[in-house]
């Protein structure tokens, strides 16, 4: 079983140091890069499936700056077998449309049964790239997975998709693209052995020319959206602290809610 996991290095949301460059692009030097949180959940699911199958490989696919291998090593340390990195100076400043096209083209260079992606990334939070890749490559798209069950013999995959009232059980033929959430389960921590092994794993790089994509259609030059201005949100009002006994505290809370017409 071969599973490609889309893996994006993102600024560490816990660092609190994210910022934009004067031209409105992400300042990647401002905060340490980590593997996107939702990507770790789908990576864990991929590792478990390949381990259970007893054969196959998990391949990471990233479109990122040339420094990305440092971040990809953590995912390799978790147990992914190898990585493919699409990197090219012309890709800097790419919008979601270009990212979708580039990753779709890169996927065509890899043999796979399934592609996994996090439902969204903590930096952009758009959550539109996986659906776009599936549309471009004619892959069935099964999103918001809380459970993934491939049947290699029938070459079909079942997904439990989170719905507003429970779950939908979806089914499609392989190869298919699946986006997943935290509901898939906690990702493992890399073991020391895994960290050592990751040093010797391969990360192949692909440049735009190898994908037949015109550099003028991607990056800042081809961006379909542009950030013009940004500012911090208006500050919240000062906090009012209540330290009274429960009954009195509750009375003040109710009065406060009534004042704001919330009760």
């Amino acid at each position: 079983m071969r599973i490609v996991v889309l893996t994006k290095p993102v600024p560490d949301p816990a660092s609190g140091a994210e910022r934009l460059l004067p031209d409105g692009r992400l300042d990647r030097a401002a905060s340490p890069a980590v593997v996107n949180g939702n990507d770790e959940y789908v990576l864990e699911a991929a590792l478990k499936l390949v381990e259970a199958a007893g054969e196959g490989e998990v391949i990471l696919l990233s479109m990122a700056p040339a420094t990305a291998p440092e971040t990809m090593r953590k995912a390799l340390a978790m147990g992914a077998h190898r990585g493919v990195l699409v990197t090219d100076p012309a890709l800097e400043g790419s919008c979601a449309v270009a990212t979708t096209r580039v990753l779709a083209a890169a996927l065509k260079t890899i043999e796979f049964d399934l592609v996994f992606a996090g439902v969204d990334t903590s930096d952009g939070v758009a959550g539109v790239v996986p659906a776009g890749i599936a549309a471009l490559n004619g892959l069935p798209y099964l999103s918001y997975a809380a459970g993934i069950e491939p049947d290699m013999t029938a070459r079909r995959v079942r997904v439990r998709r989170i719905s507003p009232t429970g779950f939908d059980v979806l089914e499609a033929a392989m190869p298919a693209l699946i986006s997943g959430t935290q509901a898939l389960g906690e990702p493992r921590y890399p073991s020391l052995k895994g960290i050592m092994a990751a040093r010797n794993k391969t990360i192949d790089t692909l440049a735009l020319a190898e994908l037949g994509i015109d550099p003028s259609t991607v990056g800042t030059a081809g961006a379909k959206t542009k950030v013009h201005a940004w500012e911090p949100p208006p500050p919240r009002a000062a906090t009012r602290v209540i330290r009274d006994a429960p009954d009195e505290a509750a009375r003040q809370v109710v009065a406060f809610l009534a004042e704001r017409r919330l009760v």
Partner: peptide, 14 residues
Amino acid sequence: SVFGGKLITRSTFT
């Protein structure tokens, strides 16, 4: 709202 609400951005379609 980006970066966990740290910034509000204004964007257009090119």
